[in-house]
């Protein structure tokens, strides 16, 4: 397979087991949502999959090759990591950040072309400190996917965005997943249910449920893990979002 695989991953910190014997495989052409309560081990798992965090036990394979045997430059060109938020030390412009993202490819695409592709031409010279949350997210996405990575890992990239921008971002990730392995941490179960092909529910450092998105959403795991009762509703074809109200209309 051309995706990612992790085998028997164990990560410990401060005497606590953050991940316990996690084995998963991710294939190309699938948008996978990682969900679970706070402290479930989602971000740790994503960092292990990205290679940033070395597990205490277990192995990670990218395209069937042990991740530790990848050279940093090759790993950077094949993979893309989209953080929850970025705080650069220097006030880079949009163009400079996209250029940095593109520079990890052995044959970088022209920055002007990338800016046009992501609708960032007018923002090219704008500096990071004056960008809105949505503009920052688009910039980071453009930089991340610039070399056409075949592996994209995203840590809740839409968390600070409004609904329009969040939907826009998930649409883009969905499109990217046709050609690449895309694994995204999502707190928004509604978005995960609607856009992901596969949902993995993490809890207490283990995989609590894993399967086709519709099956996981319909199953009992979410109620048990989040300790919340959900109402499942079907979105009308002409709607983008559901706003629920309480019986007295408040």
């Amino acid at each position: 397979m051309t995706g990612i695989e992790c085998r028997s991953i164990r990560v410990e910190a401060g005497g606590k087991r953050l991940l316990d014997d996690v084995s998963l495989a991710f294939a190309r052409g699938t948008l996978t949502g990682l969900v679970g309560p706070n402290g479930a081990g989602k971000s740790t798992l994503l960092r292990v999959l990205a290679g940033y965090r070395r597990p205490d036990a277990g192995q990670v394979f990218w395209q069937e090759r042990d991740l530790v045997s990848w050279l940093a430059a090759g790993r950077g060109a094949v993979g893309g990591y989209l953080p929850q938020q970025l705080e650069p030390a220097w006030n880079y412009s949009v163009e400079e950040i996209v250029a940095l993202g593109a520079s990890r490819s052995p044959a970088p695409r022209p920055v002007a072309e990338l800016l046009a592709e992501h609708g960032l031409v007018e923002l090219a010279g704008r500096r990071w400190n004056v960008l809105s949350g949505g503009e920052r997210a688009r910039t980071m996405l453009a930089a991340t996917v610039a070399p056409g990575p075949s592996i994209i890992l995203a840590d809740e990239p839409g968390a600070s965005l409004d609904i329009r921008h969040r939907l826009d971002l998930v649409h883009r990730l969905q499109r990217l997943s046709r050609e690449a392995v895309v694994v995204v941490i999502m707190h928004d179960l509604d978005l995960a249910a609607r856009f992901c092909d596969r949902i993995i529910v993490m809890n207490g450092g283990i995989v609590a449920a894993d399967g086709e998105a519709s099956a996981v959403i319909a199953g009992p795991a979410l109620e048990e893990i989040f300790r919340v009762r959900f109402q499942r509703a079907v979105l009308a074809p002409d709607a983008d979002w559901v706003i629920s109200t309480t019986p007295n209309g408040a």
Binding site: A50, G74, G76, P83, L86, A89, W90, Y92, I97, L100
Partner: peptide
Amino acid sequence: DLLGLGEEQAFAFGLD
């Protein structure tokens, strides 16, 4: 330049 994006992002962009 990459380090200026933060250590984690620099790593993701192919720096050790």
